[in-house]
Design a protein around this nucleic acid. Structure first.
Length: 800
RNA sequence: UGGCCCGUCGUCUAAUGGCAGGACACCGGUCUUUGGAACCGGCGGUGGUGGUUCGAAUCCACCCGGGCCAACCA
């Protein structure tokens, strides 16, 4: 299959999120010719669906790029720098999960621990550069010295040890001469940094512990902020994607990469981690549920782990499609469980054969059917709208079972299943009528005695009468006994980790063995139906087959306990059920109610109290107000930086016209910053006089505002004479109606449907027309005139 | 009296100074031997106040709301 070759300007992949946009831009600008991403789990627990988001992003992006002909790959790297928490067990499960999700790292499997020697060398390099030192304070002193978020830290007494002493100490740390905690290696950065992570972060600690891969080879281990960026750099990762909570770590990431000799300088970008309603996404808390026994292991089908989802029967395709559906962005969010369910159903609908299973049986005797007669009915495996072939035989006998819930003695309005004296169709079978209800001593219904319309074999009545309801059924004598496990959400509230009023941060309470989120565990998350009956045809199938039990949901046989003599089915997901929803709305208590979104608070708006402005800024601002009549807010912005203020004052002095103070203030505040690129005004390739001249050209109408902005961009890039740039770029504004009108008329004529819509009240379209006019005139049209003419022309069109 | 980040339909997410669009959910309809699926239609949003601009979800200022940061965890 060859795909149409994209034009020279079209991106290789759809830039459908901000990370893909960054990659596309880097490729387009030649910053990278190939792309390398990575998925870097710590092997201290099982992967969950939040990790799946990251996997689909990193591996999926690399795959997309390759398919577009761009060299790209994604590494699987185990971030195993903490020997105390990590185990080989977890690395195996992680490899399995990533493979199962459909991704392949080829030869690019890495372990941070394989790079320990290189990291050690990097540490010595920092020491030699005077950028790292051995600190011998106890842990508590180091913590205290770091200060708080509001107060600066204090420098360690060991901060100024000589390079030789540091090297010696560090080498002896490695050699095992010291006990745990005796020394650490720290970066020498800035104890007063507003970013806590830059206050001389610890790079290495002593841990006399056996590592799952390196054994006892090392007794010092690097910490995340030192190790992770180096791993990325050693592997020559180009784009390092991580979650939002690492935003503050980016500064130290860049610092390490900048100060250590590395083969590459990867960049870190952060995106929002996945939160899902009615579950938790923290490895630590999930482990707690496992250890506590609230669930049946990491792969309990209620767990949001990949292993749990897999055991439940969810397909990798469904998870991938879900991840693509939710996108990638920087806003914290919590995804509706309905979205995952949709992805699962959407996938299973196409591949799951339909069969019949009664989970909560109610005995039905067909009184006009002979006791030993078996009618093998033909039943298709897929509905008409699924494009797949196949059928099987289902046995119809005198004794059947129906779902207890499909019978009502006192039906609510709208109920269209079986009622006393009423008819219902047995799917692919016969139409039956309920003649008699049999009860036990407690009054519980134990049996229905029904008569079948023998002419309705297959389900349609020969007289053409309408039977509203169709229910599933199984032969009581030929059906196969089995268990069906009905799974529901693990927690009964959308955000189990949310802070409660009296309970701190949601995971520490008065009793550490019983954290608050446990209170929200849904007691009905697993309902077992041990007396279910399924049609015999399933015994013939591959045990991996995923079915739809009609009207019950999608299921498959539990891979751990359900593949033996007696089948055990896990319900993967229910069917969409508009009837249940209606009942719920009508007041029938069912699923836990959704939390109402909190009403948005009325906000006070207005300029309000301004934050304290440093007195010297205030003084300069006042002077600007006095000298030029600026608005106070504007004056304060200009006065914030004395260099900007100086630039501004000089420009006002140089302004060729009457009064440039106001316009120049606007340009200084609104147009200058975007083109400054972190440069100070003095570092710009143009002088205040050039800005003044430019603004004068805008003020006298020679160029439009947007034309002026274009000129400013050139000025900021390479300087020059504004007037010459205007001529060079051919930006002289066209204000002459006689010249503009034909263009305007042509644009309106070219879009009659849009013109009609505009007259119909869709006035947002004026922006569209303006854009067209601007394009047609190369951006030279006087926008004010163009707009006026456009409005006239559009309005006239309505009369003619 | 800290720093960084983020606010778009109920939810998730596009629009990168020019038509506020998609998906899920929801509501209607068509069809139906699954109260399923599919198809058609509908509802519904730029946190607030000012400012810049011909034009602001987008740029600027302030306010409001949310998240992250003080492990020798990652």
């Amino acid at each position: 299959m060859t795909k149409p070759s994209p034009g020279p300007s079209s991106p290789p992949i759809e830039p459908r999120d901000f990370l893909r946009q960054i990659v596309v831009r880097d490729l387009a600008e030649g910053r990278h010719r190939h792309v390398v991403t990575r998925f870097p789990p710590e092997p201290n627990g099982y992967l969950h669906i939040g990790h799946a988001k990251s996997i689909v992003l990193n591996f999926g992006l690399a795959r997309e790029l390759r398919q577009a002909g761009v060299e790209a790959r994604c590494h699987l790297r185990f971030d195993d720098t903490n020997p105390l928490t990590e185990e080989t067990l977890y690395v195996d499960s992680i490899r399995e999960d990533v493979r199962w999700l459909g991704y392949d790292w080829g030869e690019h499997l890495y372990f941070a621990s394989d790079a320990f020697e290189k990291m050690y060398e990097a540490a010595e390099e920092l020491i030699r550069k005077g950028l790292a030192y051995v600190d011998s304070q106890p842990e508590a002193a180091i913590r205290e010295g770091r200060g708080t978020v509001k107060t600066p830290g204090t420098e360690s007494p060991h901060r100024d040890r000589s390079v030789e002493e540091n090297l010696d100490l560090f080498r002896r740390m490695r050699a095992g001469e010291f006990p745990d905690g005796a020394h650490v290696l720290r970066a020498r950065i800035d104890m007063a940094s507003p970013n806590m992570l830059m206050r001389d972060p610890v790079l290495y600690r002593i841990r006399h512990a056996s590592h799952h891969r390196t054994g006892d080879q090392w007794c010092i281990y690097p910490l995340y902020d030192f190790a992770h960026c180096l791993e990325d750099a050693f592997e020559e990762i180009t784009h390092s994607f991580c979650t939002l909570e690492f935003e503050n770590n980016r500064e130290i990431y860049d610092w390490v990469v900048a100060n250590v000799t590395t083969p590459a300088t990867p960049r870190q970008y952060e995106f929002a981690r996945l939160n899902l309603e009615y579950t938790i996404m923290s490895k630590r808390k999930l482990r707690f549920l496992v250890e506590r026994g609230d669930v049946d292991g990491w792969d309990d089908p209620r767990m949001p782990t990949i292993a749990g989802l897999r055991r439940r029967g969810v397909t990798p395709a469904a998870i991938r499609s879900f991840c693509e559906m939710i996108g990638v962005a920087k806003a914290d969010s919590r995804v509706d469980m309905g979205k995952l369910e949709f992805a699962i159903r959407d996938d299973l609908n196409q591949l799951a054969p339909r069969v019949l299973c009664v989970t909560d049986p109610l005995k039905v005797t067909i009184t006009n059917w002979e006791a030993d007669r078996v009618d093998w009915l033909d039943a298709p495996l897929f509905p008409r709208d699924v494009d797949r072939e196949g059928s099987r035989k289902v046995p119809f006998t005198r004794e059947l079972v129906l779902e207890r819930d499909d019978f009502r003695e006192e039906p609510e309005p709208g109920f269209r299943r079986l009622v006393p004296g009423g008819e219902v169709r047995l799917r692919y079978g016969y139409i039956i009528r309920c003649d008699e209800v049999v009860r036990d001593d407690n009054g519980t219904v134990t049996e229905l005695r029904c008569s079948a319309d023998l002419e309705s074999r297959g389900g349609s009545a020969p007289d053409g009468r309408k039977v509203k309801g169709t229910v599933h059924w199984v032969s009581a004598t030929e059906g196969v006994p089995c268990t069906v496990r009905l799974y529901d959400r693990l927690f009964s509230v959308p955000d189990p980790e949310a802070r409660g009023e009296e309970e701190g941060d949601g995971d520490t309470g008065p009793d550490p063995d019983d954290p608050p989120f446990r209170r929200h565990l849904n007691p009905h998350s697993l309902v077992e139906r041990p007396r279910a009956l399924v049609e015999p045809s399933v015994l013939e199938d591959d045990p991996d087959t995923r079915y739809q039990f009609e009207r019950v949901g999608y299921v498959w046989r539990d891979p751990e306990t359900g593949r033996g003599e007696r089948p055990v089915f896990n319900r993967i997901v229910t069917l969409r059920d508009s009837w249940a929803k209606r009942q719920e709305g009508a007041g029938g208590g069912g699923a836990p109610p959704k939390e109402k979104p909190a009403p948005r608070r009325e906000q006070s708006g207005g300029p309000g109290e301004r934050p304290p402005v440093p007195p010297e800024v205030r003084a300069r601002a006042h002077a600007l107000v006095a000298d030029f009549g600026l608005e106070e807010v504007d004056a304060e912005i200009v006065a914030r930086d004395p260099r900007v203020e100086g630039f501004y004052r000089a420009a006002v002095d140089a302004f060729p016209g009457e009064d440039g103070a106001g316009p120049l203030a606007n340009w200084t505040i609104h147009e200058l910053p975007p083109v400054m690129d972190d440069r100070a005004p003095g570092e710009l390739p143009f002088e205040p006089a050039e800005l003044a001249l430019l603004v004068a050209l805008v003020e006298d109408g020679t160029v439009s505002n947007s034309g002026g902005r274009e000129v400013l961009e050139v000025l900021a890039r390479k300087g020059g004479d504004p007037r010459a740039i205007v001529n060079e770029l051919d930006l002289v504004q066209v204000s002459d109606d006689a010249a503009l009108l034909p263009v305007v008329q042509e644009v309106v004529r070219a879009h009659p449907d849009k013109a009609r819509a505009w007259r119909g009240g869709k006035h947002g379209l004026l922006g569209f027309f303006m854009g067209q006019v601007m394009r047609a005139t190369g951006g030279k049209a006087d926008p004010e005139r163009a707009r006026a003419l456009l409005e006239e022309t559009l309005a006239e069109g309505g009369e003619g």
